[in-house]
Design a protein around this nucleic acid. Structure first.
Lengths: 96, 96
DNA sequence: AGTTATTTTATCGTAAACGGTAATGAGCTA
DNA sequence: TAGCTCATTACCGTTTACGATAAAATAACT
């Protein structure tokens, strides 16, 4: 994964968060209270300047009432499966 | 978002990563070389003991050649009610 | 113009995510 | 038994996410 791909990944995720928040008429301060994430931190995430943790993204998705996958949706076919989806037929359930 | 919800979120994501990796016959060491993430770090992520950053998850998804959204467990990726066998494509529902 | 709301940026602690390495454990085969 | 592979855990250093706060910039509205 290239450095630029990671940059646009963060920028895209941030843009989606901002669109969702603005679409619901929320300010950064309001979303901060809903998520427990400070407004400055949210600003950095929305502008793609911070690499958030998974649970941080989940708290944002939760507050915005959208599925987490929506915030990180890369093109759902980023890697075109040649003939079979690579997620087919994994059944190693008890790895504990 | 409750503390336990975050715990199961990390555990579910880790379980999916492990399923994908095992389904492709990769060892932690091999995935470590593919992702640039150390094997101990991958082990912690797969066992739900570490809260990975977004770009870390993206590098794993990239190496496993699956969309990033697949690694995230929420209602969108949950098994659809019926009408279609699961694990046939990466359905994102109404959200593109 | 001015005034408020909102966002961005900066700085300072703390906590945690990383890589690297080494040690440990678990399973498996000869 | 030993030897091997893989995964887990425990350190240590570095980097970075995060909260808190303040300040600066921007936006919006009068």
């Amino acid at each position: 994964m290239s450095d630029n791909a990671e940059k646009t990944l963060l920028e895209d995720a941030g843009r989606r968060i901002r669109e969702m928040r603005a679409g619901q008429g929320l300010s950064l301060e309001q979303l901060a209270r809903l998520t427990g994430i400070s407004a400055p931190a949210l600003s950095l995430i929305e502008t793609g300047k911070r690499d958030p943790r998974l649970t941080t993204l989940a708290r944002i998705a939760d507050a915005l009432r959208v599925p987490l996958a929506v915030l990180i949706a890369d093109e759902v076919n980023a890697t075109p499966p040649s003939s079979e989806p690579p997620s087919e037929g994994y059944d190693l359930g008890d790895y504990q």
